[in-house]
């Protein structure tokens, strides 16, 4: 499996090699990883759509805790997942930091003559809570599925077959091409290439990308020929069958209840206000 894609879902304290054997022993503690991938995908999808609707701090806080609970239950490595949760795009951080200053409302503080409003701060907090609740839930439930199973599960969820094929091909070759990229990069380093803020760097990296594209295109031609030799007629056989077990039923019901009560809390607040 692809290392780049696989890294995200590795359990705490388990190396790649041990993951399989030790993982089996502790499987009762990693119940999230035993759930039907289809259930997990649908759950995260519904959860994220609902969380985006929330605007009150109480249900948002509960949703955030729900995400955190899932993250802890999945036994994701805490520090690395925290880093992932925190690495939102720097531009988004800029957006959030500026929100208090661009939203009109009660003045809270003033920095260099710009006044910050409580309303803006509140909106920034709302966005942060929503984003993090969803990121944690999806890291816990989705990043723990391996990428190929993820594609197979999407196919079972009636995602168009060609899209799934495209996804599976991409997953298969991300790792190969990453290795190719590292090789080209090493070769450049050996020839004394040091990146900097200059035209030479941009030109060289452009050639690197161009070479990467050419090589992968040639690779894809070889792949197609090899596949045709083996009688490829445009049909990948998606053989994996998933079981919808009692555990999945319980999880779906609890998840439904959780999401519904979040929405109810939100509505209740509206009425109360």
């Amino acid at each position: 499996m692809s290392d780049i894609l696989g890294d995200a879902g590795r359990a705490k304290g388990l190396g790649r090699a041990e993951a399989n054997s030790i993982g089996a022993i502790f499987s009762h503690r990693l119940w999230i990883r035993e759930l039907d991938p289809r259930v997990r995908i649908v759950a995260v999808f519904v959860f994220s759509i609902c969380v985006v609707q929330l605007d009150k701090l109480l249900p948002l806080g509960i949703a955030f805790l729900g995400g955190l609970f899932l993250l802890l239950q999945a036994r994701m490595p805490f520090v690395t997942s925290l880093k992932r949760v925190l690495t939102v795009d720097s531009f988004i951080i800029l957006l959030l930091v500026m929100l208090p200053f661009t939203t009109p409302g009660t003045e809270m503080a003033s920095v260099f003559g710009f006044s910050a409003s409580y309303e803006g701060l509140r909106q920034a907090i709302v966005i942060l809570l929503r984003a993090n609740a969803i990121v944690m839930a999806s890291l816990a439930l989705l990043a723990t599925i391996d990428a190929v199973t993820f594609g197979q599960a999407l196919a079972k969820l009636k995602v168009p077959e060609r899209l799934v094929h495209l996804l599976l091909f991409t997953v298969r070759y991300v790792e190969v091409l990453h290795a190719e990229y590292l090789r080209l990069k090493t070769a450049m380093k050996c020839r004394g290439f040091a990146p900097g803020n200059n035209l030479h760097t941009y030109k060289s990296v452009g050639y690197l990308v161009g070479m990467l594209l050419i090589r992968s295109f040639e690779r894809s031609e070889r792949i197609l020929m090899a596949m045709k030799c083996r009688g490829f007629n445009g049909q990948f056989h998606l053989l994996k069958d998933f079981d919808y077990t009692r555990r999945d039923l319980t999880f779906s019901m609890i998840a439904c209840l959780f999401v519904l009560s979040l929405l109810a809390l939100e509505m209740l607040h509206v009425v109360a206000a």
Binding site: I4, P160, R162, L163, H165, L166, L168, F169, T170, V171, R172, Y173, V174, V176, L177, H178, Y181, P195, G196, N197, T201, Y202, V205, L208, V209, L212, L213, S216, F217, R219, S220, E221, I223, L224, M227, F232, N233, G234
Partner: peptide
């Protein structure tokens, strides 16, 4: 997807993976 015939899927998939890898490349600014 309509334009993607089966013959083109390997090329599209491999190129899609290339663009995924390219998004991991950082250039100084």
């Amino acid at each position: 997807l309509r334009k993607l015939t089966m013959d083109l899927i390997p090329a599209a998939g491999v190129l899609s993976a290339t663009f995924f890898v390219a998004s991991l490349i950082h250039v100084p600014l």
